[in-house]
Design a protein around this nucleic acid. Structure first.
Lengths: 145, 145
DNA sequence: TAATACTAGACTAAATAGGTCGGAATTAAT
DNA sequence: ATTAATTCCGACCTATTTAGTCTAGTATTA
């Protein structure tokens, strides 16, 4: 339906929450889940995805928890989206190596590519730091308000 | 998965095919289905959606078929997408009247809105006529090539 | 009246979304 | 050493959506 999944939404909520806590502070899943209204067990899996993508670091055991692996202004929406959903492709025919049966006569590929390029450009330019209440760094988002 | 459905893809293939045949010529479902590799019965339902949205006109009986309801340069990708999928909302919280539980502290809504605005702007600016082989009218698509 | 087309609605198989469950492994504090 | 806090892991589950198919029409024309 051309809509982001709950997974992406939850991942970003969590990432933004971690960003607000400051890199370094270890935040347990419970706290994130409760404060951002995310099912805890589901959240754990989602954060694991972000960890695998190198966005989050985790520590087990008592006093353990999660923290951002790098500063919030170097983690973009695109990073988070792709961490949990894999690479974005607006249509199957935009994938590398995909061979569309009607490609020669269809001409749509270029449209999907360009639409996707614009979307990615925007999501890559918006970072977790931009979500910090009050201070918005991304001028393109700023300009839209 | 943030990807357009087969339905949207088929709808656009069909619409582009109709555009290429010229408004006025009645094209039967069979011809569209075969030439664009779309399951016929599925196609009929999809075209019905486009008809309900006022994009296509149909005529029953022998020599019947489908044709565009207006000229191809006045039917955009956005028109077709919304005809078969309903209004686009990049995230649930962008919908009118939706009340997000963590909205006050989340700040993401503005990002989805702006991302969506950019996407729609592009899809609304790209028409079926732009898909005519060789002649591309939409300069923004043109520029991307 | 036969052939060609679209129409309507029920049905279905497979995939995806959105989780849940139960416990094992790890660590810090007591 | 024990316990409590915490992540990690894999299997499981269920509802919804996707991508169609099937059957039985109705309308139109030659």
């Amino acid at each position: 339906m051309l809509q982001v999944s709950r997974k992406v939404d939850y991942a970003l909520r969590a990432a933004i929450y971690l960003a607000a806590q400051g890199q370094g502070r270890l935040v347990p899943a419970n706290e994130i889940a409760e404060s951002r209204r995310i099912p805890k067990k589901f959240l754990e899996k989602i954060i694991k995805d972000m960890q695998r993508a190198g966005l989050v670091t985790s520590y087990r055991g008592a006093q353990g928890g999660y923290t951002l692996a790098r500063s919030s202004d170097r983690i973009s929406f695109r990073d988070v989206i792709e961490a949990v959903e894999g690479p974005i492709a607006l249509n199957v025919c935009v994938n590398e190596g995909h061979d569309c049966s009607v490609m020669a006569s269809c001409n749509m590929q270029r449209v999907w590519r360009e639409g996707q390029r614009r979307m990615l450009e925007f999501f890559a330019g918006t970072t977790l730091a931009d979500m910090n209440p009050r201070i918005f760094l991304n001028t393109s988002v700023e300009a839209a308000v």
